[in-house]
Amino acid sequence: MRLAVIVFPGSNCDLDLYEALHTVCGADVEYVSHKATSLAGFDGVMIPGGFSYGDYLRAGAIARFAPVMKEVIRLAKAGAPVFGTCNGFQILTEAGLLPGALKKNDSQRFVCKTVALEVVNNQTRFTHQYTAHERINLPIAHADGSFYADQATLDQLEANGQVVFRYAEENPNGSLNNIAGITNAAGNVLGMMPHPERAVEAILGNTDGLRLFKSLLTPAAAD
């Protein structure tokens, strides 16, 4: 599986995602510029965290117009795995690949810490190596992570099993239904505020994110 890590102006977790996939998991992965007009030859897309376009206007709002996004949308529609963490999640909602929006944290502050999560749905191509309702810890680092959607959308997300991660103890940003990560209806696009790529090496004190990438790289028999 050949994966593209998209680099926007202001992306800053691109290295982290690349290293987690390449060095830790041994995946075939390449940086791709926001200016690229083709993702031919790639089987999946990884959108990193950071501050694309400085988060000016609204987090992710400008990145959705980058040339490469047409190709990201094409791959997503074709059923290829598309993953976005943090700013990547914000971009995916702005691009309409995921429902809802990410608002400013309730505290009005940036927050960086490790939080407890529940793996709500372990039947996705990103989470099948976790056990059902497993508790894991992952770092968060964001100012705009409060997930919002109207009630009908929320009900639909819950009913379809699209809520993949939920904050299990403290809700650090005011997200509705304690939502930390969701997929699209087809299940091939995952957006999440926590950073699994920051939790893949024992030397950094946490490996709870590793199985997300392993899940992606070793599709379950059902896929």
Partner: peptide, 17 residues
């Protein structure tokens, strides 16, 4: 002082031991 330093991203670049 965590009320202050939790406002700083201390983990980006994934090398913070």
């Amino acid at each position: 002082k965590s009320v202050f330093f939790e406002q700083y991203d201390s983990m980006v670049r994934t090398s913070t031991v």
